[in-house]
Design a protein around this nucleic acid. Sequence first.
DNA 1: GCAGATCGTCTGCGCAAGCGTACGATTGCC
DNA 2: GGCAATCGTACGCTTGCGCAGACGATCTGC
Lengths: 158, 158
Amino acid sequence: MPDRGDDDSRRDLAAMVVPLGRALIAGEQRILDAQQLSMWSYVVLTALADEPARTQAALAAAIGADKTRIIAVLDDLQARRLIARGQDPADRRGHLLSLTPTGRRAFVRARAAIRGYERRLLDTMPGTDRSAFLRGLARLSAMSWPQLTGAATEESVR
Amino acid sequence: MPDRGDDDSRRDLAAMVVPLGRALIAGEQRILDAQQLSMWSYVVLTALADEPARTQAALAAAIGADKTRIIAVLDDLQARRLIARGQDPADRRGHLLSLTPTGRRAFVRARAAIRGYERRLLDTMPGTDRSAFLRGLARLSAMSWPQLTGAATEESVR
DNA sequence: GCAGATCGTCTGCGCAAGCGTACGATTGCC
DNA sequence: GGCAATCGTACGCTTGCGCAGACGATCTGC
């Protein structure tokens, strides 16, 4: 007999995931405030730490943001010498975006603080649950948007 | 040696949880559209199915909504005979809120559709991971807001 | 070398949500 | 019996976000 017992009583997935997301955002915002970073700034730094971007449009697409809404963020980060916004000699329309050494240090510091915060939360649960939780979360979050939303109407996901 | 290997490379919790929440909302919205229900309507029905409310303010507080913003929702649900908004003989200021039989049927139908959707998503992962994932998620989402956000600044969570 | 696409920037619209205020009706305290 | 508090309702303000359009500068295909 499959353990469907908890299925009827448990709350909806969205009813747990969404408020949790809100709380995580609020908690991380606090940490980032201490580092004078906004959430968007941190997302940008994360993306650029992964790899530099050849255009702002590409960066915006990579982080799922509106291309017009990251301009102010980039302006700020550039003014604080955390990123470099250089001319692309091969295409003078675009801007080459990369982290400065200062920017990379700031990012590493911010991420360490955030990782510490998350670790404190995750350490609330047993170790085996924690890794399974992270594995499951990663799997779901790796699914594409059409896959995730499409399962609402189509009959098979796999 | 603890398995910290994935910790340095994995994405931030919030970066996985928040988009997942958005996708879940979008998927469930699709389902609810088919039942002519909004997300707020569904949340209200869920709360009232659990137990009737003695005042609108209590209901709003229970679902974490603004008391002024559920008025239109209640108006609509009442007009469609899904909820009953009766006068409280003991306190003529408040309204007794409860599900009508029709409302309960609509709720059960909607929840079944949503559960099916979530099951299709969860069945993507191995069974053992699934239950651990749900357990961990439930644990995190059961933590209070001050607990979740406070871990950002304070040193102990437990 | 010209037409059409792309890039960064600016501006404005629309929507949803939270928050505060106000107000009449009503209740409970003392 | 009077005063503060509560309930439901309406209104407006503000913030954040997505989306769209426009513009000059620039690149690419042909």
